[in-house]
Nucleic acid binder design. Structure first.
Lengths: 311, 311
DNA sequence: TGCGTCCATAACCTGGCGGCATGGATGTCG
DNA sequence: CGACATCCATGCCGCCAGGTTATGGACGCA
């Protein structure tokens, strides 16, 4: 008997939620559609998977048996899919590079140019990640390498090579009273509302709220953004202000938004990251080497930072 | 990204066959349908899975990566599905019993009656298996126990408890010269064409051709049948004769077919079989106990049983 | 008694799958 | 050298499965 993984996801969602309506909501389908699908799954298996009551849907014995297997099944499919995609990338000589919005700055171009020289016939394919995925697809295996800013959650499970640092500035609505100041002390912003990343992003979110550098003062959250566009919009509309790397002033310049230098916050570190499984991959190694090489000039200008040792 | 297991089966078939047309044939779909599906799979994965040539379809690197995972994925789904079905059987208090056509004879009713007495509230659900599945669904985990005739392929991986033996007779077209004889010696049938099971059924097929008891003389195959209906039809139409347990004379009596006692072939043994995984299952154990109890009277008497009225 | 919360049902629409017929490319053979 | 065979791709069409909205029925709760 055949199933669609979609159907399995539906089933898993209902099993977890114990409630059709909420599960339907989570799956972005209507509740009747979900009802039909679950009933059909039951019909096809010839087994009752849930007992219905006004309290919701609770698993029966066969339902539990299935629910136990489904997650690993979905995971297995996902792995298979990714393995194929990776093989396809290799075959097409494409290095997939994840980048957090405003990940690296101008250096990115140098890196890619250097890589193109080193690996003739290869091509770098960049994909911008939303802030809700702080490893830019690396943790999920969707990319071969990523340009990220430290610290980020999941960092310890990956190889990380710091490249250079960059001062953190502040992005303000143009109408903000401080927007005309040449230099702002972070202390002056402690009571401002901030545009933050989603709470799930943990350390990363805290870092860009400079939670450690506000002397214990709580942060006011004015808005939550997951992508640069939302972020810029939120700031321009006055929902809050936000820290940003200096280069954002060039890459995310926009009417209604002003970037200003900041004192009293540590600079931001850009790093290249890759999966430990790719340690031996010559292409990934070459790419990392290019990153270190391209970063060298900037790094010297920017104070200490670990010595570049191209491996 | 979602897939249907059907799509994975399609992919696996093409990967194995290396040829769309043949794969389509094997999958019972048209070749254009398969073409479309494979192309769609490629589109969804964003990877080329096959290189097309007039020689056929051969896997690319990503194709190989996928082909490596797909079989285990399908197997995992099948396992999950069966586990759920088994749990459903338990929950509904159903013991699923596989039976090879003409598996057990009149004893079946006694067994089921005994089980019904021992396990109140439980119910036996019988499913007839085609000869192409010599374990009657036991090997695949579709049933909890099976009534089979020894020997059958796959026997060693299962628990088998012999119940009783029954003489083997011969089924002849009514018009056959020997059809009026009271007793036939197997030797007289050596040159007759036989209606046999599919070649894949190995030992089982050989046993019912009595390949070991024809003194090295080769078997002539007149027809191949997979189900009792085909089998009866083939015999009645004169394509060949066949050995059959004595009880077939009662259970598969049909105009145009005559059953006659045979000398010179060993009797057939009926056994109950179950999966080793169910050794500790109290319900299966009870069922086996009922089988042994119901078989006891016949086992001692062995020969006669109810009078056969071969017409 | 009216309201909110569940799940089920009804009616309708649409996209995708499968089937048939056919086309295009490329060997093969009389 | 043309006829043929073998593969895969394409065009067109009918049908069903899955989705949506609107609504119903059961039940607990204030």
């Amino acid at each position: 008997m055949d199933v669609d993984t979609r159907l399995l996801r539906y089933f898993a969602a209902v099993a977890e939620e114990g409630n059709l309506t909420r599960a339907a909501d989570r799956l972005f389908v209507s509740q009747p559609a979900l009802t039909k699908q679950i009933r059909q799954l039951e019909a096809r298996l010839g087994a009752t998977l849930f007992t219905r009551s006004r309290a919701g849907m609770s698993l029966t014995a066969p339902g539990r048996a299935l629910a136990e297997r489904v997650p690993e099944l979905l995971a297995a499919w996902d792995r298979a899919r990714r393995e194929a995609a990776n093989a396809a990338g290799r075959a097409a000589r494409v290095l997939k590079l994840g980048a957090m919005a405003s990940g690296a700055n101008e250096a990115t171009q140098d890196v890619i140019a250097a890589f193109a020289r080193l690996r003739r016939g290869w091509r770098v394919e960049m994909r911008q990640a939303a802030w809700s995925d702080p490893t830019a697809g690396l943790a999920a295996g969707d990319v071969d390498a990523a340009l990220l800013r430290l610290p980020f959650p999941g960092q310890d499970a990956l190889r990380v090579e710091p490249l250079f640092t960059e001062p953190r500035w502040v992005a303000l609505p143009a109408a903000h009273p401080l927007a005309t100041r040449e230099l702002i002390a972070f202390r002056e912003l402690w009571d401002e509302p901030f545009v933050a990343a989603r709470p799930e992003t943990g350390r990363w979110r805290d870092y860009w709220l400079a939670a450690d550098e506000r002397d214990g003062r709580p942060v006011r959250i004015g808005a939550i953004a997951d992508r640069p566009d939302d972020w810029l919009g939120a700031i321009a509309n006055g929902y809050g202000i936000a820290l940003a790397p200096e280069s954002a002033a060039r890459f995310y310049a926009r009417p209604g938004i002003v970037y200003r230098p900041l004192s009293g916050v540590a600079p931001s570190t850009v790093a290249v990251a890759w999966a430990p499984a790719d340690d031996a991959d010559p292409v990934v190694r070459d790419f990392v080497r290019c990153c270190l090489a391209a970063a060298a000039p900037q790094r010297s200008g920017d104070g200490p930072g670990p010595r570049p040792d191209a491996r």
